[in-house]
């Protein structure tokens, strides 16, 4: 399975998260907005990683209360994986 995902995060500084899901691995993560250095760092570290592992690691990372751009990425990945399983 190969799929491009665009996700609108909620409650954080970034306005859009996009990535490719290829056979359950994450590629080309991009954040629009948010803290530039931090989000670029997350994107680089997530490249080529197992999607479930990325989601598990980033879930619950707190910045704005209990929310953050990495947490929103984990939600985006989980949603994409659920949709793929349903297809």
């Amino acid at each position: 399975m190969i799929k491009h995902v665009e996700y609108t995060p909620e409650g954080v500084c970034s306005q859009k998260i996009s990535f490719d899901l290829v056979d359950g691995y994450v590629h080309h993560v991009q954040f629009v907005g948010g803290c530039s250095g931090n989000t670029k760092g997350v994107a680089i570290l997530a490249e080529g990683m197992n999607a479930r592992e990325v989601a598990d690691r980033l879930r619950g990372v707190a910045c704005q209360g209990a929310n953050s751009c990495p947490h929103q990425l984990s939600l985006a990945i989980e949603q994409a994986l659920s949709e793929s399983e349903a297809d």
């Binding site: 290829v22 056979d23 691995y25 590629h27 080309h28 680089i44 490249e47 080529g48 197992n50």
Partner: peptide
């Protein structure tokens, strides 16, 4: 480590 690499992606 297990890595999933895109050839030509220039990340690795």
């Amino acid at each position: 480590r297990i890595i999933h690499i895109e050839l030509g992606g220039k990340r690795f």
